[in-house]
Design a protein around this nucleic acid. Structure first.
Length: 114
DNA sequence: AGGGTGACGATCA
DNA sequence: ATGATCGCCACCC
């Protein structure tokens, strides 16, 4: 078992990115359990439909699409509240990192989810 | 088998 | 910051 699973796991990882947050090709690959498979993430993003593709960026928060597609991705992200700093998104604020953050205090219960 | 392709990523000059 | 290089992984001739 290989790619069939890989594909579903990568897709699952992408679907977890919440609105207003973003991730990167590499991070998605790692989250799916395939470090180094960033290019596979790309392949899936290109073919699969119904995915929040606009939330996946290149390392550092750079939009790797070209031309119109790049414009659209930016607009879509800004539309969901993602802030840019020059050409890159402010990863400090919007990068989706499950398992990050210090569990020193009790988590904040969010009542208004999307 | 051999070679080319991606919405990549890290490193170095 | 920018371009080149090399490493990566699955897929498609």
């Amino acid at each position: 078992m290989t790619s069939a699973n890989m594909q579903s796991r990568i897709i699952a990882a992408i679907r977890k990115i919440p609105r207003g947050k973003v991730s990167t090709y590499g991070a998605v690959a790692r989250a799916a359990g395939y470090p180094g498979a960033a290019r596979q993430v790309v392949g899936i993003l290109r073919t699969a439909f119904g995915l929040p593709w606009q939330r996946v960026l290149g390392a550092g928060g750079v939009i790797k699409l070209r031309g119109d597609a790049a414009i659209e991705q930016r607009l879509r992200l800004e539309a969901e509240g993602v802030a840019f700093r020059g050409r890159r998104v402010d990863m400090k604020r919007h990068e989706f990192m499950p398992l990050k953050g210090k569990p020193s205090r009790v988590a904040k219960p969010r009542t208004t989810n999307d």
